[in-house]
Design a protein around this nucleic acid. Structure first.
Length: 298
DNA sequence: CTGGGGAAGGGGCCC
DNA sequence: CGGGCCCCTTCCCCA
């Protein structure tokens, strides 16, 4: 199966400079001494549990000097840790989102506050009502998730800027503002977008294309490599791309997670990529992976 | 002022 | 039931 060279599409994304975050996080009414500081060592790896000497460096921005990147958050409740001291790997920090984010080590401290909010929640017949904003929910777990939105303490932190999110998908979506990954490409022009809705809005407004999808209908899943912007509709192709080009990605450990890789019988490693960007040809043998999933695709 | 696009909040649904 | 993925929507910025 791997005798033929494998064609992989690599998007020509650029690292987009977003001044917005720099301004947001460096201007604050919080006294400078009181601001938490996120210090990311320039050469630190995003994959602290693996062999750092073999890992790719992360594209970074907001660089203020040659050795370190200091990003000061105006959101004092984000609990921004110092992730370069003690030296990585730091067992107290758990990476998420393929190494682009970390679990907030102090998130458990929010449990008490959440319990107070739970106590304020009202069970009114078959409805669950938020005691803080009076929004109603049909299911308890929807109320539970809603209550987290009231908490200022966020579960996941962006390793680029320290901004916090309760949802890893929100973190992943946010990370694209730092990496410049734009998976959703317009087939009518050269524009690309970080979100599918932005692409569909663009096509509707600029090209006059109407959606052929029903309201809230699911689109075909597009697998996106958050490291380089490579996209594929095929989970097998996506997995092969990560295995070959990003052999130390934590995503490879989630081969059996159906939320990450939805393999099916029609999935083929030879399917073409959905974008029209630079095509490079890579020999499988040239990138032999030491990973234990080497034979999983046979 | 307006339109296009970026970014993120909120909620539905699947695993 | 929680985590994760996705869609809809809104807000904001900028040309």
């Amino acid at each position: 199966m791997m005798d033929q060279p494998l064609d992989l599409s690599i998007s020509n994304h650029e690292i987009v400079k977003k001044k917005k975050f720099t301004i947001d996080y460096l201007t604050s009414d919080i006294p400078r001494q009181a601001r938490p500081t996120l210090m990311i060592e320039k050469d630190s790896s995003c994959y602290p549990y693996l062999n750092q000497s073999m890992l790719p460096l992360h594209p970074v921005e907001n660089q203020l000097n040659n050795e370190h990147i200091f990003i000061q958050s105006r959101l004092k409740e984000h609990v921004v840790p110092n992730i370069c001291s003690p030296p990585l790997p730091n067992p107290t920090l758990e990476m998420v989102n393929g190494g682009h984010g970390i679990k907030n080590p102090l998130f458990d401290c929010a449990t008490e506050a959440l319990q107070i909010q739970y106590a304020n929640a009202i069970n009114h017949g078959e409805e669950f009502i938020c005691g803080l904003c009076a929004k109603t929910f049909k299911l308890q777990r929807l109320l539970n998730r809603h209550l987290k939105n009231h908490s200022q303490l966020k579960r996941y932190l962006c390793t680029f800027c320290g901004k916090g999110f309760n949802d890893t998908f929100d973190l992943k979506r946010h990370t694209r503002t730092h990496t410049g990954v734009r998976p959703f490409k317009c087939d009518q022009c050269d524009k690309a977008f970080t979100q599918r809705c932005s692409l569909e809005s663009h096509q509707r407004k600029v090209h006059g294309l109407n959606h052929k999808f029903g309201y809230k209908s699911r689109r075909n899943k597009l697998y996106v490599c958050e490291d380089c912007g490579h996209t594929s509709p095929d989970p097998t192709h996506h997995y092969e791309h990560i295995k070959i080009l990003h052999p130390y990605s934590p995503l490879l450990h989630r081969y059996y997670d159906k939320r990450q890789f939805k393999f099916d019988s029609n999935s083929s490693s030879t399917s073409s990529s959905s974008n029209n960007n630079t095509i490079i040809s890579i020999s499988e043998r040239s990138y032999s992976s030491p990973h234990r999933h080497e034979m999983d695709l046979e």
